[in-house]
Write a protein that binds this DNA or RNA. Sequence first.
DNA 1: ATGACTCCCAGTGGGAGA
Length: 254
Amino acid sequence: MKLATWNVNSLAVRLPQLLDWLCTNPVDAIVLQETKLADDKFPRAEIEGAGWQVAWHGQRTYNGVALLARTPIDAVQKNIPGFDDEQARVIAASVAGLRIVGAYFPNGQAPDSDKFVYKMRWLDALREWLRAELAAHPRLVLLGDFNVAPEDRDVYDPVAWAGQIHCTPQEREQFRQLLGLGLVDAFRLFEQPPKSWTWWDYRNLAFRKNQGLRIDHVLVSEALRPAVRACTIDKAPRRNERPSDHAPVVVEID
DNA sequence: ATGACTCCCAGTGGGAGA
């Protein structure tokens, strides 16, 4: 089966592009980030009309996540249990024998900001929840916009970005601790083109110059690792008119 | 270079994103 993750940066704006992409990229499920829609504004009819099961957890203006699947979506969990959060950042559910955790990690803004403190608290809570979730669901995939570039090879200019948001030692340590739970970066299971990014700044012709970061990830549990067949970034939607600043990432699991 | 672009809510600008 194929799973995807895509930060659409406003589902209201990107819905036609999403439905187009799903027509030409036959995935079994996709998680979305930054839908930026209150729950009562979610385009349920359009998505169900295209043949999808769907669950969502939204808020107006910021954040918001959703899960679309071709088969039934069970045991939906919104946000991190026990972590009181005003922000809609997580949707987890069971689909076709997999536990899928779709997440929009906090941006963090700047290493000396309150938002960075929140990012660290959020990551601590995510990790401790996932520890239990993995024990209960060995076949687990964590995917989404992590807002962390795990290594220098995930950054177009690691010198300029050293210590900057997404590249701080604290964020990278948090990423490693997620791997320490028994998760594997599916993208790095395969030989990949150098300078593979999932996000390019809207400004300064960054996409044309391929100046980006790899901050959207798919982590699979050890139980799934032998079944992973491919993991790729699809840059094509970034070339659309009015694109999201993120590209989808697709993983194929037997 | 406190920039650049895009989205949102607002309301003739400003916050946030990354």
